[in-house]
Computed example of a mutant assay.
Amino acid sequence: MTIGTGTGAGAGAGTGHGDEQGDERGDPGLGAIMSERRHLINLGYRLLGSLADAEDVVQETYARWYAMSPREQRAIESPGAWLMTVASRICLNQLGSARVRRETYVGDWIPEPLPEPTEWNGGPSGGADPADRVTLDESVTMAFLVVLDAMTPAERVSFVLHDVFRYPFGEVAAIVGRTPAACRQLASSARRRIRTAHPTTAAPATGQAGIVRQFRTAWEAKDIEALIGLLDPDATATADGGGLAVTHPCPIVGGERIAHAYAEIARVAGDRTTFLECTVNGLPGLVAFQGGALVTVFAFEVVEDRIRNIWAVRNPEKLRPWRTTDGLTD
């Protein structure tokens, strides 16, 4: 698995990407300030793994901006960089408190999955697509986000700001509250975690689509042997219901065990469940519908033509961006 190095929408954010607005540091204006929203959402989602939490961070960031007087706002040389810095610090604080909240979370926690923007038709508010505000590059694949979630808050923020958004370590240090040398070490530690978790290159999206399609076919047919052939012998299947949906209580480890467990899921679901192919965090995945309602989003990690990881998100609170089925392929 390779690392996204600055290809996201926020690349260069720390060096004044938002200071085109204003005239001689005049009032940047509402439009210019709100144009930074996508950069902030991109940052917040990568740091928190939750679109809902990212949106809360953006709201808090803007609240702090508008709590300042016009004179204080005009004194800020780069409003865009100021907003990104404030959002980063809010995320850092939230990451610390999130670890405490996870101790009471029912079952395994999986980052909130995102649909492809073209597979969205309106949102909870009927307005702009939240997923469309997140650039779907490799730094938001489920495999990448799961590794990020295992990092310490300082590691995660240092790595994402430097390797994904290309902040210099001097600016990262001011946000994290460490020295530039310490932040360099944190980012290096994060890279080692990623290499350890993903020592080989994942299959390209085109190849993964074929594997996911074969998996869907074998699953619907309850063909255990075919499922075993598609799964890495050491594969892991993890589900997230958050106590709000029925899931396996612990990750299932081993391709053969997963094949038997998923065949049993298909048997119990019967004709009530329909599986459709879709894009999940930029890569091929599946969604399951029961009675016309979307109940599960499946993300996959495919390595060397075998499925290494399956992440099944069933917590309905994490399926908010998937409230419509328009654009999904049958």
Rank of each mutant, 00 (worst) to 15 (best):
T236S: 10
S189V: 06
I76P: 04
A288M: 09
A128N: 04
I307E: 10
G31F: 06
D19S: 14
N42H: 06
V297K: 07
R267M: 02
A75M: 10
G255I: 05
G22R: 06
W120G: 00
D149I: 00
Q59L: 09
G8H: 06
S189D: 13
K222L: 03
P70T: 11
M68N: 08
C278R: 15
D129G: 02
W120R: 10
V58R: 03
T200K: 09
S69P: 05
A75K: 07
A237V: 04
V280Q: 09
S78K: 09
A182Q: 13
T279W: 11
I175F: 02
A54E: 05
W311L: 09
G282C: 05
G243M: 06
R306H: 14
R178C: 06
A299S: 14
G16Q: 02
G270K: 11
G22L: 05
D305N: 15
R46N: 00
A226P: 10
G122W: 11
L51D: 03
C91N: 05
V246M: 05
V57A: 09
C250I: 07
P70S: 13
P113L: 05
E112F: 00
L114F: 09
P204C: 12
A235N: 12
K318H: 08
T85Y: 00
D149S: 07
S188K: 12
M84K: 01
L231M: 15
D271F: 01
A98R: 15
T273H: 09
G126D: 13
G291F: 08
F169G: 01
Y66Q: 05
G229P: 13
M1Y: 04
L51F: 02
D23C: 05
A293W: 07
T324H: 12
D223V: 03
K318D: 01
D240H: 12
I265V: 15
P168D: 13
